[in-house]
Design a binder for these strands. Structure first.
Length: 917
RNA sequence: GGGCGAAUAGCUCAGUUGGUUAGAGCGCCUGCUUUACACGCAGGAUGUCGGGGGUUCGAAUCCCUCUUCGCCCACCA
């Protein structure tokens, strides 16, 4: 690409389209297993597996944030010389996808049962094939440098093999079993849910106190009652007992007797069980084993029946073992309607003692928000304790770190109290449970391959009807996507992966389970770093969502502001683990700064290219030390500082050993700090000072012009490298136009900048900066418009004398002054500034200066300085400070004291001579 | 009910193990067609660091307490 003049405005749309296509055509995102050090290569592998979005998802801001973070890290590592693999892909998302297709069917007036299982699955597959994976192409629009040749899908044949392998191995190890117990059931989705999928929501409910009449021991006994309290009176139809605490004195005589269950008119026993808390309510609790997990356990302990009194869709009915319990008036009523009806019936019968407001929490289905119904059923479970053990150890022993740190405690707490995982779902969309039942002998077979006949009796078999929890397959993602269970080159080269970047919401759903399966099947942790970023919220701190209408469409942002602006905004605003607040009502406020920054870069590039030209540029390393100007030395030193700051903010990419050391454990991944360090260098140092200072040199032919060209190109080149992970498009577009550009290369694969040693005295240019700033300040204070030339005098300190003498021309240009370097102050009215080393800047402003005003200004300054100096000296004379503070802090204070003393003397002298005191 | 986090300029947020005069961006005020950029340049104003108490030579930073938000977890009917 030639270095012809750039168009005055940056066309982000055209540039992004063109560059992404060229990156892809050149295969720069494609990983090569053979280059990994774990294979035959010499590069450290660096792998991230994407948190697979639902296959039917469309890009939202949360994806935008998540994938920008991953891409920044990936591009940084790629430039750092790692063999980088970012595995993209999608999740078949069992319930979510099935719900979408069911809704489509509903519009046609049909349910999935009307079309049948095979047709439904076929239809869903077709739907996914047609519209699924949209999000992956949308990720390209934000610049995601994923390896699209390795795109994975949880329901692909390859990953389905991994799912079966995992299931069968766990089954063979006795870690998967069939359990008959109360699980969370969604009456709308018609499936069981795991504990994690049934989310707690606080509600203002009611506590109903109901009295159950005790069956009289004989005809003469007075009527007695026992009161129970419940928030769900409708479950009363399934009561099989009333439990009291065995130590509760109030009820000793009632244990073993029976009560008549109202409405159902069934006689049930009073049992003694520790579960009953004597301090709650009346101390007696109704037991409904089929509709409450605790009651189920009580029921088991006492060998009680377990009638199910609701249909799967949540209507009252004699579903299982409930014959004779449901009166016709209630049969078929929805559970909440039945609640009202039962309350009325109880009231009418005089059995409702009281109703109290009762704040408590109910669980809702995480996909459809329907209140979950505890329900007795047969499900497949994974025994979690043995799997959790190595996953706990890995974090405790620092093999895995979780950032921000506080989530490690949450993770550990959850794993310590982990309960068995219900993995079967009564859905049709997903991996069918690979278990076959013999119709003849009843043998149960878990198998990697489809089973045609019973392996023991050759009888006919049928497969389990359920599918697996969608998180079962995503839990295998770090290795299933690399080819497991086969021993593939990718698996060898790239497993374990390195980092996992996601939101805390799925720490348990996904992250913890990947760690457990990583140990269970691969014998190693799947990654060494879990980076949990925040959530995207609006200015009211409400989570952005389509349904709430407070979302921002990332593609809108890309169209209006460009992908780079989107990325810059996301990364710059991201404190470690902190939420990202964006204003959906004012996109300009959120994304304007990002766009402005991109424009700034573009204009720096325009300036550079028009002024540097096409001619070859010297390498900075080939320039003799004596040829560097103060500005050159300064900007090269600032560049070093910027590189160091960026590296420190990004942190170590991997642990130095098998475990994280203390000093590196929570270091890095401060993307906001990285962004700020790079931005500050480019804008406030390179553009504001170096670029301005170099203008004169570029217009004058000669050796110095070539030095200036070389340093400018070098600094800009490195600046673009530092910024490329954040704003890949504009940096690549500019970089390819630099005179040092080699055809066919990409910034994407260029090397990450390294700190180097450059000659010169960088600090000397700081004097110049200080002088310029002082003059500008005087201009501002005295209202001398920048357009107006004025003359000034510099009276430099001895050390600064050669600097100001030599740099007068530059200072004049930057301030539009004419300056004289002198040894004495001029007579007459003048404005003064005293620099930190005592250098005086004097602007004679006959007529413009009010001597009194100038005096009071200088006096005020002196006074302030003296106050500070007093404080500083007190600190330095304080033994405690000198002995306890860090030595470098003390040293800095001492230097400061010297500097301030010089300045104070100068200021005092100035005040004395000017103001006559 | 248990645990965690947050509260700093009008807004969104930085502030690393306590250590100069608490910073950035946006917004605001003043000025500027300075030949890359008005999506810019130069200058400026703005903070009882949520309240109270404590530790310390020194606290936005550590401890206690209160207030207000937010998050996670939870079988008390």
């Amino acid at each position: 690409m030639s270095t012809t003049e750039l168009p005055p405005t940056y066309d982000h749309a055209a540039t992004e389209r063109d560059l992404y296509a060229r990156w892809q055509d050149a295969g720069v995102f494609t990983a090569h297993a053979e280059r990994s050090r774990r294979a035959a290569g010499d590069r450290d592998p660096f792998t991230i597996v994407i948190p697979p979005p639902n296959v039917t998802a469309v890009l939202h801001m949360g994806h935008g944030l998540n994938n920008t973070v991953q891409d920044v890290i990936m591009r940084w590592r790629r430039m750092s010389g790692d063999e980088v693999l970012w595995v993209p892909g999608t999740d078949h998302a069992g319930i979510a996808t099935q719900n979408v297709v069911e809704k489509q069917l509903a519009k046609e007036g049909k349910s999935r049962f009307d079309v049948g299982r095979a047709a439904f699955v076929a239809r869903t597959s077709a739907f996914v094939a047609e519209t699924g994976g949209t999000i992956l192409s949308q990720l390209k629009a934000i610049g995601a440098s994923a390896d699209w040749t390795r795109t994975a899908y949880t329901l692909s044949p390859q990953l389905s093999r991994a799912v079966r392998e995992a299931f069968v191995r766990l089954y063979e190890r006795g870690l998967i079993y069939r359990g008959h117990r109360v699980i969370h059931w969604c009456p709308r989705c018609l499936t069981s849910l795991s504990d994690e999928e049934a989310e707690h929501h606080d509600v203002h409910g009611r506590l109903y106190h109901i009295s159950y009449p005790i069956t009289p021991a004989n005809a003469t006994e007075e009527p007695r009652f026992i009161t129970v309290a419940t928030t769900r009176p409708e479950t009363l139809l399934g009561d099989v007992a009333v439990a009291v605490n065995p130590n509760d004195e109030r009820y000793q005589d009632l244990i073993g007797r029976t009560v008549m269950l109202p409405i159902a008119e069934v006689e049930i026993p009073i049992v003694a069980d520790e579960y009953s808390d004597p301090t709650f309510g009346s101390g007696a609790v109704k037991i409904t084993p089929a509709h409450d997990a605790n009651d189920f356990e009580v029921g088991q302990r006492h060998g009680l029946p377990m009638p199910v009194i609701m249909t799967p869709s949540g209507q009252i009915g004699e579903f299982m073992d409930a014959a004779g319990r449901v009166p016709p008036a209630l049969d078929g009523l929805d559970r909440f309607a039945a609640r009202d009806a039962i309350v009325q019936m109880l009231e009418a019968a005089g059995r409702l003692e009281k109703v109290e407001p009762h704040p408590h929490s109910v669980r809702r289905c995480y996909r459809c928000e329907t209140v979950v119904e505890p329900r007795l059923s047969d499900q497949w479970f994974v025994k979690m304790k043995p799997l959790a053990e190595p996953a706990l150890r890995a974090v405790r022993e620092r093999e895995i770190r979780i950032l921000p740190e506080r989530w490690e405690a949450v993770y550990i707490n959850w794993l310590e109290g982990i309960r068995d995982w219900n993995i079967s779902r009564q859905l049709w969309w997903g991996h069918r449970v690979p278990v076959w039942y013999c119709d003849a002998c009843g043998k149960v077979t878990a198998s990697r391959d489809d089973v045609e006949r019973c392996p023991s009796c050759s009888g006919p078999v049928h497969q389990d009807e359920d599918v697996l929890d969608t998180w079962f397959s995503s839990g295998l993602w770090p290795f299933s996507t690399l080819g497991w269970p086969d021993d593939t080159a990718d698996l060898k080269a790239f497993y374990p992966t390195d980092m996992l970047v996601t939101a805390p919401e799925i720490l348990f759903f996904w992250v913890a389970r990947m760690i457990m399966t990583g140990f269970a099947f691969m014998g190693e942790a799947p990654f060494h770093t879990v980076y949990l970023h925040g959530t995207v919220r609006d200015t009211n701190h409400v989570k952005m969502s389509k349904s709430l209408g407070n979302g921002i469409d990332p593609l809108d942002v890309v169209a209006l502001y460009g992908a780079d602006a989107l990325r810059y905004t996301v990364v710059a605003g991201m404190g470690l683990g902190a939420d990202t607040i964006l204003d959906p009502k004012d996109l300009d406020r959120s994304f304007g700064p990002g766009r402005n920054f991109v424009t700034k870069l573009w204009n720096m590039g325009r300036f550079l290219l028009t002024n540097v030209g096409d001619d070859s540029v010297l390498a900075v390393t080939n320039i003799p030390a004596s040829d560097f100007t103060r500005a050159d030395a300064w900007i090269l030193e600032r560049l070093n500082a910027a590189i160091a700051a960026c590296n420190a903010a990004l942190g170590p990419a991997r642990p130095g050993a098998t475990q994280w050391r203390d000093d590196e454990r929570y270091a890095g991944l401060r993307l906001n700090e990285y962004t700020e360090a790079a931005r500050n260098f480019v804008w406030n140092e390179l553009a504001d000072w170096y670029l301005e200072s170099v203008k004169g040199r570029l217009t004058t032919a000669g050796d110095d012009r070539n030095v200036a060209r070389a340093v400018l190109v070098h600094a800009f080149d490195y600046a673009l490298r530092l910024l490329h992970p954040i704003v890949p498009f504009v940096t690549e577009a500019l970089w390819q136009r630099l005179p040092v550009y080699k055809n066919g290369t990409f910034l994407t694969t260029a090397s990450w900048p390294a700190v180097a040693r450059y000659p010169g005295q960088p600090a000397e240019f700081d004097r110049v900066i200080e002088g310029v700033a002082a003059i500008r300040q005087l201009r501002g204070e005295y209202g001398i418009t920048p357009g107006k030339l004025l003359s000034g005098i510099v009276i430099p300190s001895a050390a600064a004398h050669p600097i100001f003498a030599a740099e007068t021309g530059l200072i004049e240009r930057l301030t539009r002054c004419t300056l004289t370097v002198a040894k004495a102050s001029p007579a007459g009215a003048a404005a003064h500034q005293v620099l930190s080393d005592g250098t005086e800047i004097v602007l004679p402003l006959a007529g413009a200066i009010d001597l009194e005003k100038e005096c009071s200004r200088l006096k005020g300054e002196l006074e302030g300085l003296e106050q500070q100096l007093t404080g500083l000296r007190a600190r330095l004379q304080n033994e405690n400070f000198v002995s306890r503070a860090r030595p470098d802090v003390v040293e800095a204070e001492r230097r400061k004291e010297q500097e301030w003393t010089v300045r104070r003397e100068q200021l005092a002298g100035k005040v004395a001579s000017l103001c006559g005191t």
